[in-house]
Amino acid sequence: MSLESHLEELKRRHGDIEREISEAMLHPSVDDLEILELKRRKLAIKDEIEKLRIDQTKH
């Protein structure tokens, strides 16, 4: 998998999680811990995207 395709996949997953969070927050029955876990996953993906971008600019 090329770096560009990997970045695109991460961006897609980041957007998917963003939509999941938005949907979950609309339903009062969703546990706050579930939303927190989704936010953690989203942040981890964002961190990975930034790390790859930084690594890419160094080369």
Rank of each mutant, 00 (worst) to 15 (best):
L52S: 02
R53H: 12
D47H: 13
R40P: 01
L43I: 08
L38W: 04
E48Q: 10
I17F: 00
I35K: 00
H6F: 07
D16G: 07
D16C: 04
H59W: 05
K11T: 07
K39R: 15
A24L: 01
T57M: 14
L7S: 03
D55G: 08
E8C: 04
K58Y: 09
K46G: 05
S29M: 11
E23G: 11
T57C: 06
K42A: 05
R19V: 11
M25F: 02
M1I: 08
Q56V: 05
E34Y: 09
R12D: 10
K51T: 05
E34G: 01
L10S: 02
E23R: 14
E50A: 08
L3T: 09
E20D: 14
R19E: 15
L7V: 05
I45S: 00
L36K: 14
L3N: 11
R13W: 04
P28H: 03
D31E: 13
A44I: 04
E50Y: 06
E9W: 07
M1H: 06
S5E: 13
E8M: 08
I54M: 07
D47E: 15
L3D: 09
K46T: 02
E20T: 01
M1S: 08
E50P: 00
A44Q: 15
L33P: 01
L43H: 15
H27T: 10
L10M: 12
M25H: 02
H14L: 06
A24T: 06
I21Y: 04
R40T: 10
E4Q: 12
I21H: 00
K11N: 14
I35D: 01
P28T: 03
P28W: 00
A44N: 11
K11S: 13
L43V: 07
H6Y: 08
E37N: 12
R41K: 15
D32I: 01
D47A: 14
I49V: 12
E34M: 06
G15V: 02
S22M: 12
D31R: 10
D32G: 00
E37V: 12
D32T: 07
S22I: 09
E23C: 05
L3G: 10
R41S: 11
R53V: 06
T57I: 08
R13L: 14
D55E: 15
L36D: 15
I45C: 02
S5M: 11
I54P: 00
E9D: 14
V30T: 10
R53L: 15
L26F: 04
K11C: 09
L7K: 04
L7Q: 02
I17H: 03
H6G: 01
R12A: 07
P28E: 11
I54K: 13
K46H: 10
T57D: 10
A44E: 15
K11E: 15
K46I: 01
E34W: 04
